[in-house]
Write a protein that binds this DNA or RNA. Sequence first.
DNA 1: ACCCACACTTAGAAGGCGTGCA
DNA 2: TGCACGCCTTCTAAGTGTGGGT
Length: 761
Amino acid sequence: MSSDSESDIGLSKRQGKKNRKSAASPDTLALSSQHSKPGQSSASEYDSDEALSKVKSKISKRKNSPTVQSQSKKRVKKEQSNDDSKPLSKRKPKITRENSGKLDNKKEVKKEEGENDAEDEDDGVYKWWEEQNDDDSIKWDTLQHNGVIFPPPYEPLPSHVKLYYDGKPVDLPPAAEEVAGFFAALVETDHGKNPVFQKNFFNDFLSVLNENGGCNVKINSFEKCDFSKMLSYFEIKKEEKKALTSAEKKKIKAEKEEFEEPYKTCLLNGRKEQVGNFRVEPPGLFRGRGAHPRTGKLKRRVAPEDIILNLGKEAPVPPAPEGHKWGEVRHDNTVSWLAMWRENVLNNVKYVRFAANSSLKGMSDFKKFEKARELKNHIERIREDYRKLLKDNLMLNRQIATATYLIDIFALRAGGEKSDDEADTVGCCSLRYEHISLSPPNTVIFDFLGKDSIRFYQEVQVDAQVFKNLRLFKKAPKQPGDDLFDRLDPSILNKYFQNYMPGLTAKVFRTYNASKTMQDQLDLIENVGTASEKVVRFNAANRTVAILCNHQRTVSKGHEASMQKITDKVKEMLWQKIRLKKIMLQLEPSLKKKKAKYFEELEDITKEDELTIHQLIIERETEKWNKKFKRDNEKRAEIGEAPLPASELKENLKKVSDLQKLYKAEYKANKPEVPANASVEKLEAQVEKLEQRIINTELQMKDKEDNSQVALSTSKINYIDPRLSVVFCKKYDVPIEKIFTKTLREKFNWAIESIDENWRF
DNA sequence: ACCCACACTTAGAAGGCGTGCA
DNA sequence: TGCACGCCTTCTAAGTGTGGGT
């Protein structure tokens, strides 16, 4: 069939790898290239390289640009200062107040600080980015914190709220009632309707029920359980909470704040830092993403005995809750977590960590982006090499080259092995036969579920040799279920990457390509227009990156409806516009010939459309007046005034029906009525205005549609070097607040504070 | 060489909250 | 001025990558 009878593609299934379908014969190692025609590759290599050479040429262009020169100068400077760098711990005894202090003092400190964020900065803030710190194996010298917050104990439901089984109320022991309640809250959601979720929940519910002495009814069928009473009780509770006065709400919030205050921060090397997730995860039903085999299982309540605390030897150990002990207290300064426990559903470890704005997180974020920037210096060679390696005789090498190509060009993730009790999702190395389809000469269709079971669907053109290789990797006896890259796993790939650059791994390519793309996109933006217009363009650039990384979100519930609304609005405006033009022609029929173009669109609205629009307007107006009448009267009733007479409403509705009559007449006559004081000039101005509004609305609509499935935040938070955004704001005079939310500004403070406008990724 | 435990980053959903508009 | 809507934060699941033990 193919000219690629490039011989033996042995299938070596790594041991321990998830057993999918067939395991074909053990492999022969070499790939004899004798059949591969030399001319073949060169002939077809052409279009393939387009994407790449584009990238390359941009890189080489940049090399000669002045910015790069200034950059390299900077680097020299940095290196010099490197020389006198001392270990982080010895430098900067810049520890202010409450240094060795007890955390308990914090309340007063907090009061002093008041609302002012900046105040904190002028003496206390630690500008770690102004220092050198190459060694990150030691995370801290001293670490003090107050432990974790446990969720409140379960409060049984009032006795009239029950689970019903087969129509009968059930007296559940509180522990089982709690689990039933978890499900009740979800019955109407996708989770609650998912059979796997239901089954897993039900099994665990029954175990808890048995563990706690059972109940008055023999429960053995999920279908006979009626959770509706519980659900409506929860809904009532929610309503009640919402209905509280704002003063009450404020008070509750303040109390919560005060209680949480000690847990929100900790002392790292004597400096105050935020803690991220200081709350222990409450019990609940595991909400796995995609087709997760364990979704719906009970995630059990975590006891203090399950928790391992990590803090400095010198730090006081926070007391465990009354009558309890901590599982363990550890003093490991090679890690940056404050507490951990093991969760029962997947036996995964959960950590309590520093917040994103902490120095430790900031430093590693900074290093991540510097590493990605370092890849700039190696990417050309890497690309040259994998280009050659695509034709290598050794199967392993071909797979390495092909995988690298996919990771580099399509920003695939590494794709580690997964076990049977997780959702079946894949990345590059774990792609299987069925995940790509090949369509000659060089089109590849990817269709698979990636991280979080997000679908990756792309039809792309690839390098001719890549196409050949993929066909080779799919060659019989391989079949659906088999690994495409049967010789590969992320660690092999990463080892290969290390040859180019220490610390280079598959994920660095994603960061690099994302930030590089952002830089290129930002370079295209002209410095014109208002700040908000520039933000729109920034977001468009951001979107390019998000699409590259396949960051999606589920379309919101109301999306379609709200799109329809805008479409209708546009149509109505169009109709208005055309109507105005028609009036114009009645005033001055000769215009039609004089400005033929201008009147071309007169036929753009069908009679049918016209009718619908008429109806829509009439309905809207009627409703508007009815509503207003009702509301006004309600208000009057409240202040004890007599209701407005029905005649008032009638009068207004009369106006509407007059309008309706007018429209009817227009529809019949097939031409609008000319208003008394109309003039061509006035009408032209009105048309102009409408035209502008239509353009704006359509733009807004497009933006909305484009954004409906794309999540910009993930790339903004994790992939786009924040210095790019900061430089953009400085150079284009856009307030940083328009790009970064408060949280993001805190997280990226290092970028905001340290960058001048000539910085480039 | 492989496996697994561990530590850390990256991810979308859910829910809260502020705001702009009829 | 109420409320729908979209933005932001919180939550926790789901990845990647390292390193130690066998």
